[in-house]
Design a protein around this nucleic acid. Sequence first.
DNA 1: AGTGTCGCCTGAATGC
DNA 2: TGCATTCAGGCGACAC
Length: 281
Amino acid sequence: MPELPEVETVLRGLKPVVENRIVGTIVIHRYDLRIPIPADMCQSLKSRRIVNLERRGKYILFHFNNDMIAVLHLGMSGKIDIVTDTSNYSRAKHDHFILKMSCGTWIVYNDPRRFGMFYLLDRISWQDAKPFSKMGPEPLGNGFNEGALIKALAGKKCSIKSALLDQRVVAGLGNIYVCEALFASGVSPLRLAGDVTAKDIALLVPAIRNVLKQAIKAGGSTLKDYRKADGSLGYFQHQFGVYDRAGKECPGCICDIQQTGGVQRAVQSGRSSFYCPQVQV
DNA sequence: AGTGTCGCCTGAATGC
DNA sequence: TGCATTCAGGCGACAC
C-alpha cells in the first residue's frame, strides 16, 4: 500500500510510543512474510531499548541500543496498530507479530497479503546492505535536486514513469505519487526517461516534493485499507488530480470530456498509469 | 548493466 | 446467491 507519505505518517505515529522505550518481548504468529522473519528476531531484540526511529524510502528503521536495526517494510497491505488497552485486544486475522513494549503498549503488525518485511541489520553496515546501498536520494532532502535527477535519468531507455518508480533513482515514490507528480509537472508518463528535458526536470523536482508534502500533511492516502497508526484515515485521495480517475476531468479542466475522454489509463510494465493528454505531453 | 515480465498472497469489486 | 475473473499502494528473481 504505502508509499513515502503513508510510511512517514506511520513513523510519526509510532515515534512517541516507541522511542527511548524498551521492547519487552516480541510475539511472532507468522514468520512467512514476503521475506521470512529471521528466527532469532525475538532473541536479538528482547529487552532492548529503541533509541530512535528513522524512515529511508518506504522502510522504517528501528535503531536499538545494541547496534541492531530492525527493518520494517509494509509491503502493499501492512498496517501498524498501537494498542494501549491490551486487555481488550484479541488477535485479528492477519495480525502477524506484536512488539510488546515494557511500558505496556503493544505495537501490532497486520498484513493480509504478507508482502511486508521485518528483518535485522546492524548499525555499522546497514547502508551497505541491499536495498539501501543503491537507494536513491530522499525526495524531501537536499540530495534530491535538478542536477541529481538529470544525472539519474540521463540515457535511460525506460519510460519516465518506470524510472521514477525505480527506488535507485529516487526513494519512496510509488504508483500514486509518480502519477500525481507527472501530472503536476505536465510530463507524460509515456515519455522516455532519457528524453525528459532539463526544463521539465526543473518542474518535476518541485512537483515531486510538493505532492509528497501535501500528502504527508493529509496523513497519506487511504484507498483500500491503509490507516494511520492511530487508526484514523488519511485523506489525500480526495486531492488526486489523475490517479484512479480514468474518464473523469482533471483539476482545472476546460476541455469537453465527451470529446477528449478525460483522464486516460495506460498500462506500463504491468501497472496502471493515469494521465491527462491535454496537460501532459 | 539495464530493462521487462512474472510471481508472491489475500481480499474487494466486477461480470456472468 | 454463487462462482470466476480482474485488479491492487511493492519488490525481488529471473530472462534477455
